[in-house]
Nucleic acid binder design. Sequence first.
DNA 1: TGCTAGCACTCCTGAGTAGCGAGTGCTAAG
DNA 2: CTTAGCACTCGCTACTCAGGAGTGCTAGCA
Lengths: 351, 351
Amino acid sequence: MATKKNNGDGQVSERAQHFLKALVERYIRDGQPVGSRTLAKDTGLDLSPATVRNVMADLEDLGLISSPHTSAGRIPTVAGYRFFVDSLLTVRPPTDEDLAQMRCRFGQAADLSGLIEETSRLLSGLTHMAGVVMVPRHERTAFRQIELLPLSGNRVLAILITSEGEVHNRIVFTERQFSPADLEQASNFLNDMFTGHDLRDVRKRLVEDLRRTHEHMDKLMMRAVQLAHEVVESAEHRDDCHIAGQTNLMEFGELASLERLKQLFDAFSQKREILHLLDRCIVADGVQIFIGEESGYGLLNDCSLVSATYRVDDHVVGVLGVIGPTRMDYPRVIPLVDVTARLLSAALRQQ
Amino acid sequence: MATKKNNGDGQVSERAQHFLKALVERYIRDGQPVGSRTLAKDTGLDLSPATVRNVMADLEDLGLISSPHTSAGRIPTVAGYRFFVDSLLTVRPPTDEDLAQMRCRFGQAADLSGLIEETSRLLSGLTHMAGVVMVPRHERTAFRQIELLPLSGNRVLAILITSEGEVHNRIVFTERQFSPADLEQASNFLNDMFTGHDLRDVRKRLVEDLRRTHEHMDKLMMRAVQLAHEVVESAEHRDDCHIAGQTNLMEFGELASLERLKQLFDAFSQKREILHLLDRCIVADGVQIFIGEESGYGLLNDCSLVSATYRVDDHVVGVLGVIGPTRMDYPRVIPLVDVTARLLSAALRQQ
DNA sequence: TGCTAGCACTCCTGAGTAGCGAGTGCTAAG
DNA sequence: CTTAGCACTCGCTACTCAGGAGTGCTAGCA
């Protein structure tokens, strides 16, 4: 075993860092394992390939780079990318062109769901990868109005309108037919009780009412509470996300196995795992990055996620981000995601 | 040039038809070009390969089959599939298992959009291809109620509820702020005027009103008509469709080029072309089949579409279908699509 | 006249092989 | 610490070569 020639254990020398940076940047640029000769030129230090090879050997010992096979160049490992992203990265702020496009796109959408969709498209368009936006939680959303309408066949249409102007509706089967008058009475009752209250509080109240209701409430009101509970719950559970530009991922050589892609796309269309992952991002503020296996979801191996939270009135309400191959252009993507999140926050504040 | 040995021109002899049928069925089964030896066994007529070759040569002259290269077996051409589907097909009705699954799935969904989604999933699940359902037009849908609510920043939330219990909503910017009382007055006005009327008629009336309104209507009502028009129009224009199981198409060898698949998926996510195609299916009643280039959309070469219309009260309201490789199991898929359409019709009637 | 056997021919496929080029690790010298 | 030199390792490409599947044609048979 060769002794490690680094200063101390696990310490990466100044020069080694410089090389790592150049290597990652180069590999991001053209996706080919980087050899010593190439890297020697890239650093601009006028060193011979042999010298570079020594440094590369050190970096390999530290687990920051590896070679796919004996006689190929080196590529960054997950740890290598991580080091790069955490310590070496010089971000490349969005070009004026990019900024113009972003502003323009944000001007267009009218309502919330349009905004979400447009944002995910924007992300995928700018990065040529998959853009994903999680639909915001409504922390501060208030109950505004509920409407109960009879339909044919013992069904009731419950419509909930929030203070933000979102409309949720749900069809509920009931055991018996209610007259329009009954339902109007019921909705009046609910509106009187809840209008203006925070949606979360409303849900809590409804759950309580459902439990200890039997005594002092007539049957109609009990049923009304139940209906309201259903629609409020469906409104709160609307933990959804929007993904755009999935097909962009087919262009990357490293993901190009059909099998791999199928798994990935299936995951996208089920959304479940993606939602979990995004949920984990929401706790930390600002930009977060998961590289390769770091996400913990086998599916996303050789993929990275760059995410950022967005907010309304200093309250984090959601996450957006970009999913692409581990070899993505972090210096460009990170600020893009960051700015997009800010712009979305701004757009939401205006509403 | 060899003279064609068929009886008359373009006529396909009884025996040739038998062979064509066997060949198509065989090719559907295992996706490999079918040679004369294999086919000789399949027909059960106890003929030698040489004889079969003669017949195959005839079929090739007629353009019903072709060989990918000199020394491979034959595969059906588009015309061959067409002939097979039109004249030779013996359909294989859904198994009891399939039927059970279908009935069960149709029982679950509550509201319209849930039903649409479930149906497309059902189609893709049963066929292992892509299932597509066009959201129904509401020919006979009536205006039930409109609600206008003020939001912050000169915006008005317009909610339209139809007789079928669908809820459409739209946020509209207005030039000035309206008070809740104003908007209530306006919505009362609209409800009085339109409740119970056919949605199409309503739209026509609204357009007329918009034109010759200036004289005898006050400004608020004019604006109300405009708002109503926007939401009714958006409700009518909701020409949308739902696609499920796209990823299934990645499993078919004949579509497996990445480039091909990317085009296809892009088309799916844009939906535009698919919608056009489905629109063309809606005019003809019952099951329709587009094989390969027949669809006219270059994108769908080597794909087929099997579609069927569905209806409410003897009125065609939409189309559903399955998209898969030209080499699909028509004898099974056709009845499946047919039955699904019937079940969806039934489910819609119940609503 | 229709069917069949035989035969030469075509063309795809897969295995095996050789050569090239890129890149490495090691060693010895500056 | 750096560099030049050198042997070595692989992966990639092109090439060849046999094997196999299937064809078209022709001539003979019922």
